[in-house]
C-alpha cells in the first residue's frame, strides 16, 4: 500500500479534528476532537515506521528499523491518557463553577 494513502488519510482525520475544534462550542466535544487529531498523527507515525522497515529490509533481512517509532506511539498514548484525566477534571470543575460547558461563557479573561 503506498504511503501516500496513509498521509492523505491522516491529513483528512487531522483536518476533521481541526474543523470540530473551530466549529463546536461544547468543551467536551472540542476535547474529543483534539484526541482525534492525536490519533491521526499516531496512525501516520506507524505507517512511516512500516515504510522505513520495508526499505531497510531490502538490504538487511534481520533489521529492526522502525521499532523506535512504534514505542514513540506507545509513549504518546501514555501521555494522552494522563492528559485526558487532568483535562476532564478541569472540565468538571468548570461545569461546577459556571454550570455549563459552553466555551462561549469562558471569555472572562478579557474583563
Amino acid at each position: 500500500m503506498p504511503v501516500n494513502y496513509y498521509i492523505f488519510l491522516s491529513a483528512a482525520l487531522f483536518c476533521i479534528g481541526i474543523m470540530g475544534v473551530l466549529t463546536r462550542r461544547n468543551a467536551i466535544v472540542i476535547f474529543m476532537c483534539v484526541e482525534l487529531m492525536l490519533n491521526a498523527v499516531n496512525l501516520l507515525l506507524v505507517a512511516f515506521s512500516k515504510m522505513h522497515h520495508l526499505r531497510a529490509l531490502a538490504t538487511d533481512a534481520q533489521t529492526t528499523v522502525g521499532t523506535d517509532a512504534q514505542l514513540f506511539v506507545f509513549f504518546i498514548m501514555v501521555v494522552a491518557a494522563a492528559e485526558v484525566s487532568v483535562g476532564l477534571a478541569i472540565i468538571v470543575m468548570m461545569y461546577r463553577n459556571i454550570h455549563s460547558v459552553d466555551v462561549n461563557f469562558l471569555n472572562r479573561l478579557k474583563h
Partner: peptide, 20 residues
C-alpha cells in the same frame, strides 16, 4: 504540499514484519 514529495513510490509493509 505532500503529494509530490518523493514518497509516491514508497510502500508500507502490510500484514507482515516482526517489529510490531
Amino acid at each position: 504540499a505532500l503529494k509530490d514529495t518523493g514518497t509516491q513510490r514508497q510502500l508500507v509493509q502490510m500484514k507482515e514484519g516482526q517489529i510490531g
